[in-house]
Amino acid sequence: MTTVFRRAYAGLRWLLVGTAVAAAVVGLSAVLSAVATGGPDDHTVAFRSVAADRSLAADTGISRQQAIDKALAAVPGGQVTSIQLDTDQGVAVWEVELTTPAGVEHDVTIDADSGQVRAVVDPD
């Protein structure tokens, strides 16, 4: 009877050791992956702050609707398919995508501070 318990305990012990080793390998893999991909505490020279982008959204000179109006004036008859606030060479810009009734897509870039149309890209 003691032999049965001894064998069962030995099997259980190896099962526990194997589980602990597997957990350590998985944990170490997760840590190495986070380090390799620049995890949440990535301190690199080319760091770009997401908070800076959010502050641009709060400090724009023209609103989203004003940007849409400027883009529609630049592409008469167009319909807005998307709009987003972005930066272009450190300047806050509204990027507006429009489609004309003929199906032609246009990308209009508008300075978010002055409201000036910076570019209208036609897919010629």
Rank of each mutant, 00 (worst) to 15 (best):
P40W: 12
D42N: 15
V75S: 02
V120H: 09
A67I: 10
E97P: 10
V31Q: 01
R54N: 00
V50I: 06
A52I: 02
D53A: 13
G11V: 15
D59H: 14
V120G: 12
K70T: 13
V91T: 09
T87P: 02
D86R: 10
A23H: 08
L15R: 01
L32S: 13
G27K: 04
K70P: 10
I68M: 07
R48G: 13
V80M: 14
W14Q: 06
A57K: 11
W94C: 02
D107N: 14
V17D: 00
L16Q: 07
D122Y: 15
P123E: 01
S29W: 08
L32D: 04
G27L: 13
L85G: 07
P40D: 03
Q79H: 07
V17Y: 06
V108Q: 02
A58C: 03
L32F: 09
T37L: 15
A20E: 00
T44Y: 04
L16D: 03
G90F: 01
A52C: 01
T81Q: 05
V17K: 05
T109W: 03
H43Q: 14
V50N: 12
T99A: 08
P40H: 09
D53Y: 13
T19K: 01
S49W: 04
V80A: 12
K70W: 05
V26A: 14
V31S: 03
G78Y: 14
V80P: 07
T100K: 14
T87Y: 05
W94D: 01
R48F: 03
D41T: 11
R54E: 00
A73F: 06
A46G: 04
D107V: 14
R48V: 15
V121R: 07
I68V: 15
V75A: 03
S55C: 02
W14C: 09
D86H: 06
